[in-house]
Every structure is written in structure tokens, then in C-alpha cells.
Design a binder for these strands. Structure first.
Lengths: 337, 337
DNA sequence: AACAGCGTTTATAACGATTCAATAACCGGA
DNA sequence: TCCGGTTATTGAATCGTTATAAACGCTGTT
């Protein structure tokens, strides 16, 4: 593969001049510049990023580690981050930790070894001890969606408690006095917060909120819970459920529909995340939407702030407010006769 | 940040020895090795990947460009490729072209500039001219899922025609004589092939196959088609539909269910891709599954084959066979009275 | 004719690792 | 005691680029 030296030889100039053509073209006489450009295209010269990174001391990339690439939440977040990175001509290296702490650790090491300018990370569990080392050695890190507790790091997240409040308020305002929360396990911080938010609203409104814990956040996990609900006598049944995410909500919708309940007539449903399927469901689903792409943008901005001026930079924990998207699954219907 | 020189100084050895500890520990006396290791951990030394890549002439990574990270097909494919790369201690750099030719081009350039050992690519449209340059300059490329026509490149793909045959055979064997194919646009190679496969089977069996073209492969796109179907008089209605993907199939399922048809009693449904939702649908969906992870594995293996011995390597086009997963949506039911 | 000033170009020293030939240290055997 | 043969360690060259200080060639002034 052609090197800068080959280009220089072909253009009859020194390598310094070629480097100038590449990095500060205005400093090179137009005729020379043209000659060098010609040599570059003729040889198909592609600069060697590693050599550049070596002199510069850092590479022109930032790292992004997410627990699930498949999840549109993180895909959108990545888009947001990329957008900001593009403005600086930086590449975002995307890694999928798949919720495996081992993978997270490995990628962290790789990114550090590549001397990335900074790292955006959704930590798998607690923030690894290894992370503190990375930060101590000088690579800025911004936490995504989790671990906002860390005061010595920047982080961005969405307020799940507010999300819970939005959902519950929406239902209470529509006259529901007996709600159910479906979700779990409660060890997942997000789930617990969403419940807490809902609880605060129902308590204040004097409404009833029963809690149905599931083992996970999948369609399948919703089945058991929903079957139980649907088979209760109407008087004993909540008139609305708030699900910790849209998959659960879809599961509930499917199951109770099969059990011949009408949605929203017999049971109103609110989901969380506003995935693409929410709008496309048999009964379009009311859901709580998080500003995903903005989350990524702001995270990247915080990171660059720290990169640009590590001294003056003060760590910030940015919390976004979610938004409720009302659809048919909570529409007020004429009371059944 | 600590360099190899700092480590050498602290351990009282030369940098050559430190390098040996890192790359061929058995060549270093145990006592020295221990001393160096201690220095490494004490200083938190992390080797500089760019410096390594510079001497080596290539980095320890391969690139993977997919059109949609959100799509589980590509996520699984990535996992397969990673698995193989891990065995060689290589990192997979994942890029999401988002079907934008501009992004694809940019990433291709970045990967080449990083001197990756090879590239796995799902080309957005036709194979870009730029790609030939990349290949000509010596970076091996394997095409994923598309562009198998190129005889001068390796590629892996799944036989969509066989997929169509599987689906149609399954339905014909269950006694269906009037089928419908739902999908589109037919400019998408995969869609056209699936239809062609189905057609060959129905023709051979003397069954009827009507074609309902949709504008896209989404739940929403299925609505119109399904509504039309459901409202036809039973005699004029196909007894089974084969959808070009699972999203369409789910849309059809939802819509015809709402129109009071029973699945599979009144209408059997076969999807394609076997996404997670297929099994979790109201009526679990029969679907054609592609060996996604294996696709990634084999692609990576082909790439490494070429990397290891570019001279002897002969380009191959590997085509996998899909598999039909039978579920409730095509179960044979007692004929309605 | 000498020189200051300017715009271009060049030579060279980094950057942080790996590699490999050369050297040093050590051992047992003659 | 010296030697051949290991085994361990070192020093220097090298990778491809950027940055920088010095050199160069003109022009216009004095």
C-alpha cells in the first residue's frame, strides 16, 4: 500500500509538503498542491490512521458501549452521539456488551488501548472498578442511562419516576380508580422507579394501585400476569394497567384480548419506551417515550466538553423528562351497558 | 499515560524485555517477568494500539458494516462474526450504514485508513466502485447477505428461493390450494426470490398463488392488504398467506383477527425471519428461519482464509439453506362445520 | 549590491511499540 | 581454567505520520 513517501516521490516534493496538503492545504502553493493531489489519487494513497494517532497521542475516535444493539433505544442513542461526533470529524466505535460484564471490561480495555478521546458507556451492572482506573488514567467517560449516582462522572439519563407519574396521571385523569402495575424484577432500577412514580400519583389521588411482579420484561412474562387479571370478576379487576415496558404491554394486550376483554373498554393499557410496535399494535398503545436521540447528543456534548477542557470541566448529571404518547389503548369509551 | 519506557525504567530492564513479557512471556526469566508485571500494574500501563499497529503494518481489528443494527438478523450475524474473531484475538468494529450509501463509503474509508485486516460488508445498493479500489489495494472484503453475484469476492447469503419453497411446500402439504403471497416492493431482491420460490412450488402442485404487493415490509403495510383479503367472501379468499417477512405476517394476523377471521382456521399464515415476536404473537407464527449467527461465523472464516493466504485463496459464494419453524399459525384444524 | 521580508519547501526529530542481531551471563564438561 | 552452548537481555532500526525550525528563492527597498 502506498505511503506518504511514495506520494512525495511521485509528486517530486518532500513528505512534509504532502502532509501539508493533507492537513493545511492553504499553506501549499496551488500548483504544488495540484501535483500532490494527482499523485495521491494516482496511487490510491490512504493515510495510515495508526501513524497519525501515534504522533497525535490519541486517535480520532470515541467509543460507545451499549448493552443491546438490537434495542432501538440504544440505536437511536448511538445516532444522536454520532451526529455530534461527526461535527468534529470523529468516528464512533460501537460495541455491544450484551450485558456481559466480561465483554464490557474487554471493550473498555480495547478502547483505552486505542487511545480513544473518550468513552460513552451504559454500564452493565454497577460501575466496574476498572472504570475508575480508566478515568484516572485520563480517558473521559460519560455514563448513559444508568449509574447517575456517580458524582465524579458525567451522566445522562431519563427520569423514570416522572415517566411513572406521567403514566399514572394519564390514567387517573381518565377516571381510573383501580390501577395495576405490571413489571419486574424490581431489582432493575428503572422498573422500581417507574413504579414509585406511579405510586406517588395514585396515593395522592386516593386511587388503588396493585403491583403484579413479573420475572422479566418480555411478552412471555406478561402472559401469566395478564391471564390472572383477565379471569377475575370485573368488580375485582383493575380498569387500567401500567406496564414497565412495551413488550409487557403488548403481551398483556394479546392475552386479555384473547380472554375476550376489550381494550380500552374493559382494560386500559399504558406501556413504556414507545417502540415501533407500540403504534402498530392491534390496539395502538399509549406509551411513555424517552428522548433517545437527544440523550445521545447531550452525552456526546458532555464528553467533548470534558475532552476540550478537562481542568475546568465540572461533572454533571443530566436528567431528561420523558413524554407520554396517548393512543387508542387508553381512549375513554362510553361505559359498557 | 505510562509508556513502555516508563515500565522498563521502573522494572530496571530494557524496553525490549518489557515487549517480550507482553508478547512472548516464556522467553523471559520468571523473576524478571514478575518484576515487569509488577511495574505494569503499578503504573497502570496500557499498550498503545496505534504504535503496535504501526510496526505490524495492520491493526488487530476487522470491520463490519451492516445496514441496520436494530435488526436482529444483523445483530446475530455480528455475534457470529465476533465469535470467530475472538478466537484470533481480533476486535470487530461495528458500523451502522443505515442504508445510506454516503455512510457506507465513509466507513469503508475509515476502515481502510485504520488498516483493518479485512471487512465484512452488507452493501447498501449495488457494490460501490469504491469497494473495488479497497479490494485492489489489498484489504479483503466478504459480502454479507447481498451481492452474491460478484465472482471476484467472497460472499455469504441465505437462499431466499429455497425459503419461499419451504413456506409454500409447508402450506401445500397441509392441503391449501389457494395461497396468497404478501410482500413488496419486488425490486427488493430478497422479496422477489421468496416469491419465485413459492411460485415454483404452487405451479408444480397445481395450486393457485395470488400476489398482493405491498409498499414495504412493515406492520402498517400489511393492513391494507389484509383488510382486502378478510372482507372477501370465503369462497374467493385464499386459505393461507405467505408473507415476505414477519412484520407483514404480524400485521396480517392482527388485521384479519380483528375482522373476525380465525387463524389458522380461516387463514393460515407463514412469516419469514423468525423474529422474537413471531413466537410471542397472539397466534404463534410459523416462520422461515435463517441461520443468522452461522452466516456471520462463516463470513468471518472466509475472510480469515483470505487474510491468511491471499495468494492461494479462491473466492467462494456460500449459500445457506433456511429452515421452516412450524407453529400454531399453520396448524391443521378440524374443518369448520 | 546587499538585505529584509515573505511565502514555500525541506530535513529531521519525535510518537510508542516490535523485531532481531548482538551481547552478556551462566552452566557443565574437558 | 578455558571453552562451547544455552538462555536472557539489550540496543538499534523500523513502521508512517506530524510538527517545527531552518533553508530557500523571490521581490522590492535601500
Amino acid at each position: 500500500m502506498a505511503t506518504i513517501e511514495d506520494v512525495a516521490a511521485r509528486a517530486g516534493v518532500s513528505i512534509g509538503t504532502v502532509s501539508n496538503v493533507l492537513n493545511r492545504p492553504q499553506a501549499v502553493a496551488p500548483a504544488t498542491r495540484a501535483r500532490v493531489q494527482a499523485a495521491i489519487t494516482a496511487l490510491g494513497y490512504v493515510p495510515h490512521a495508526a501513524a497519525r494517532a501515534l504522533v497525535a497521542g490519541r486517535s480520532r475516535t470515541i467509543g460507545l458501549i451499549v448493552p443491546e444493539v438490537t434495542n432501538p433505544f440504544f440505536a437511536d442513542l448511538a445516532r444522536g452521539a454520532e451526529e455530534v461526533a461527526d461535527d468534529r470529524d470523529l468516528t464512533v466505535m460501537l460495541y455491544n456488551s450484551n450485558k456481559a460484564p466480561g465483554r464490557e471490561l474487554r471493550f473498555l480495555g480495547q478502547l483505552e488501548s486505542q487511545r480513544v478521546q473518550g468513552i460513552l458507556l451504559t454500564p452493565v451492572n454497577q460501575v466496574a472498578e476498572a472504570l475508575s482506573d480508566v478515568v484516572a488514567r485520563g480517558t473521559p467517560v460519560v455514563l448513559l442511562d444508568r449509574g447517575s449516582g456517580h458524582r465524579n462522572l458525567c451522566s445522562v439519563a431519563v427520569d423514570d419516576r416522572v415517566g411513572g407519574e406521567l403514566a399514572a396521571t394519564h390514567l387517573v385523569e381518565r377516571g381510573h380508580r383501580h390501577l395495576a402495575f405490571v413489571g419486574g424484577p424490581f431489582t432493575v432500577h428503572q422498573v422500581a422507579e417507574r413504579l414509585a412514580g406511579a405510586r406517588s400519583v395514585t396515593d395522592a389521588a386516593g386511587a388503588r394501585l396493585e403491583v403484579i411482579e413479573t420475572t422479566g420484561l418480555t411478552v412471555a412474562a406478561a402472559r401469566a400476569a395478564a391471564t390472572g387479571l383477565a379471569r377475575r370478576p370485573a368488580a375485582d379487576r383493575p380498569t387500567a394497567v401500567f406496564c414497565a415496558n412495551d413488550l409487557l404491554a403488548l403481551g398483556v394486550l394479546q392475552t386479555v384480548t384473547r380472554e375476550r376483554l376489550r381494550v380500552p373498554g374493559d382494560l386500559a393499557i399504558v406501556g413504556y419506551d414507545d417502540i415501533a410496535f407500540a403504534a402498530a399494535a392491534a390496539v395502538p398503545l399509549t406509551s411513555v417515550r424517552q428522548p433517545r436521540q437527544q440523550l445521545g447528543r447531550v452525552a456526546a456534548q458532555l464528553l467533548f466538553e470534558e475532552i476540550d477542557d478537562p481542568g475546568r470541566h465540572g461533572h454533571r448529571q443530566v436528567v431528561f423528562q420523558p413524554e407520554l404518547i396517548a393512543r387508542a389503548s387508553t381512549r375513554v369509551t362510553a361505559p359498557a351497558s
